[in-house]
Design a protein around this nucleic acid. Sequence first.
DNA 1: CAGGGAGGTTAGCGGTCGTTAACCTGAGGG
DNA 2: CCCTCAGGTTAACGACCGCTAACCTCCCTG
Lengths: 220, 220
Amino acid sequence: MATRTHAPTRREQILKEAARLFAERGFHGVGVDEIGAAVGISGPGLYRHFAGKDAMLAELLVGISGQLLTGAKRRLQEAEAEGGGNPGTPGVSGASGALGVPVGPEAEAVLDSLIEGHIDFALDDRPLITLHDRELDRLRDSDRKLVRQLQRQYVELWVEVVREVYPGLAEPAARSAVHSVFGLLNSTPHLGRPGSLPGRAATATLLRRMAKGAFAAAGA
Amino acid sequence: MATRTHAPTRREQILKEAARLFAERGFHGVGVDEIGAAVGISGPGLYRHFAGKDAMLAELLVGISGQLLTGAKRRLQEAEAEGGGNPGTPGVSGASGALGVPVGPEAEAVLDSLIEGHIDFALDDRPLITLHDRELDRLRDSDRKLVRQLQRQYVELWVEVVREVYPGLAEPAARSAVHSVFGLLNSTPHLGRPGSLPGRAATATLLRRMAKGAFAAAGA
DNA sequence: CAGGGAGGTTAGCGGTCGTTAACCTGAGGG
DNA sequence: CCCTCAGGTTAACGACCGCTAACCTCCCTG
């Protein structure tokens, strides 16, 4: 929450409006003139800020994936520090590597935290969540590889935590379960315009309960 | 399952390939030449079968929505007949109207059946499931209205059944829960190509368990 | 007070795309 | 045996779109 308290720069305005338009009508369905018009300038003026239309999409998608992954890593480390957890055993789940996943009851708290973070993101940046799994194929190869790598790390982080909480889940099943819960949490754009919702807090609570219930049912 | 045992006609070939391409690269990202090439003819030959590119998308989306709704209605009626259920009380849930929803334990069986049907569809027609909630806005107004109406009926049918199974759920919460479970079930396109999956039956079982777990958690 | 760069503008080019026009062909029926 | 017509073909048109070129105009700074 401590990010970005300054006034939004032009670039940020453009990215925000571009995200909204891309989410509404698809990358190919939006012209650069429309993006420009949405921020008060028109057409080719955008090229003072971005190399091209592709570059806007790339920056959006890389930003989303990175933000999700960074937040998840932060939450995992916070839980690790808070729990005082096992300084000598950075990883218990076999050949996993990059990050130490807490064990036992602490793992469940981490999973809750991951769910909470993803819900916040899905509710606060609905256009971005839409783009994130819809327009990936419109990227240049190098950008697409980068985004895919970030997404994969994010998924793997969830999978490790989920398997710690539900040891009965085999790895492929856990991965499928994680993707399915992402589908559940990312359904917020379909829940009607923000106003027909029963309130943000109530929606978040419902989503959290459903996600936990889905995981629990998967791990039975 | 009894539908379409005959050899596929040209129109059906075209629709199938168009659905795949639209799902892969988006409606605006696919040219008519590519669609034609996918069925062995090239470019404008498609116009012997469809009025235009828009018409293909419209037929696909209307077909999907109608198929989902029809299947759901059929399952509801089958359960009604099988349960022998309450011929004098066609509807117990207040001012609902079009269809009689069974009460009590029968309702849970109906919900299971709805989940089963949706999973079958999501696993068998992944491109269509993708299009269904992605390219709706590219339709002409009249077609879009029709599709929206069919989708809304489908959702309402689920909502009625869910509220019968979990009477504690208020209507807006039930609607959100239904949309979220759709998100969960429609996540199959993200589960990797059909082959990296742990097998269709295992995937279906996992999805079914998670959907039921999510509903149960929502209705607590 | 020059001057230079940041951030706009409009005109226009080149390519792509959906669609139409005009033409061809092979199979079935009177 | 011709005629028709379903189902193709290629050529081409018009619109649109991403992007560049050329130019303008403040504002800030030495």
